[in-house]
Simulated assay, not measured.
Amino acid sequence: MKTSKSREALEQLRKIDWDSKRIQTDSDFADIKHFDLTNPDYKILDMQPTLEVLYRRFAQQLRFSLYNLFRHKAEVTFGSVVSMKFGTYSLDTKEAASLHAFKVTTLKFNGFVKIDRSMITALIDLFFGGSGDTLTSEEEREMSPTEKRMLHRFLDASLENLQEVWETIIPFKIRELDTSSTPVSHFFYNDSELIIISRFTVKIADIEGQMEVVLPYRAMEPIREKIHSYNNTSQDPKWKNTLQENIMLAPVDMSATLCQVPLSLKEVLDLQAGDVIKADIPRQVTVRIAGVPCLKASVCTIDSNMALKIMQRIRQKEKSE
């Protein structure tokens, strides 16, 4: 029996057309997702949520800094965080843009800020009382010392805000560098080095321009774990203080029951105008805030007005009891 069964199995295998079984159509691979490990974007995917939180906060703080500097309502919108090779990014800087380098002394790496030159011209015009709609000439001109000082004030405010948001995670001290003596390209090893670009849109007095903060990816590697463990609510004391201050301004209702008189339904129906209901006012009552018992108070009178004198707080254990 075993021999006959094995022969039948071999015979069935021999009859199979294996060439036809190897042919597969494109529909067989429809559910397969392609993942390119050579794509640099995958390296920041795990850090991207935290970076977005940081740079959204940076956009909010920069908005207030611009208002204090130019006395005009400003809108700073965070765009995206992307990664690419430095050589690819260098090809994109041919348009009219200004690059300003900085050094993070605590982590020992360099980055730079890229600002549209038309935006710089408009901000300078606003600072000196203009409308900001000055047209930029096609030929780049040398800025005057006064204009350079104003530009440095804007850069100082931007870098200070950048330092503040990063210091919620790690020590992050920034110092502006002189790009006239050291070009930005000298801060990177080669064109294949990976960089992280954070893009923002700045709009002030109907003038809109682009701003980018560029950091080398190698600077993120040593602090990757801290970026992963970053918690927006527990590690940002300013956010917690602001939230607490706003909560303290919320209005609440305070109430206290001074007396309770048990009456039957018949007694209530028999009440007439002018009847007097006798009630004993207790010496101490419970004060409820938003319906929650929080305080003990004694009943007293001040200037012929009934009042409550706070005696003590009610602890959580007393509430549960």
Rank of each mutant, 00 (worst) to 15 (best):
A74Q: 00
D133G: 12
G79Q: 05
R57L: 14
K94S: 11
Q260K: 09
K2I: 07
H152A: 13
P237R: 11
Q12A: 14
L177N: 09
E208M: 10
E267N: 12
M1D: 05
V299R: 08
D270S: 14
K173W: 00
P216N: 10
E52K: 13
P282F: 05
F187Y: 12
N110S: 15
T146Y: 02
I32F: 04
T134K: 13
V81M: 05
T182M: 06
L155N: 01
R218A: 15
M47R: 00
S65H: 07
E140G: 03
W239P: 00
S264Q: 09
R313S: 13
Q60G: 12
T3R: 15
S137C: 11
I169K: 02
N161P: 00
G209Y: 08
L69P: 01
T106D: 12
V82P: 00
V81D: 00
A9N: 05
E321L: 13
W166Q: 07
R218N: 09
E318M: 07
F58V: 01
R57M: 13
L123S: 06
I227Q: 08
I197H: 01
T301C: 10
M211K: 04
L107W: 02
F64G: 07
Y67I: 06
D156T: 15
D236E: 05
G132Y: 02
M143L: 14
T121W: 01
L62D: 05
C294F: 04
I289N: 04
L155S: 00
D191I: 03
E208Y: 00
T88C: 03
D236G: 07
T201L: 08
S6T: 09
T50W: 03
L263F: 02
E193M: 14
T136R: 15
A273M: 10
P40G: 01
K43Q: 07
K278F: 03
I281V: 15
F127S: 10
D17L: 09
I23N: 07
A157D: 03
L243Q: 13
Y230C: 09
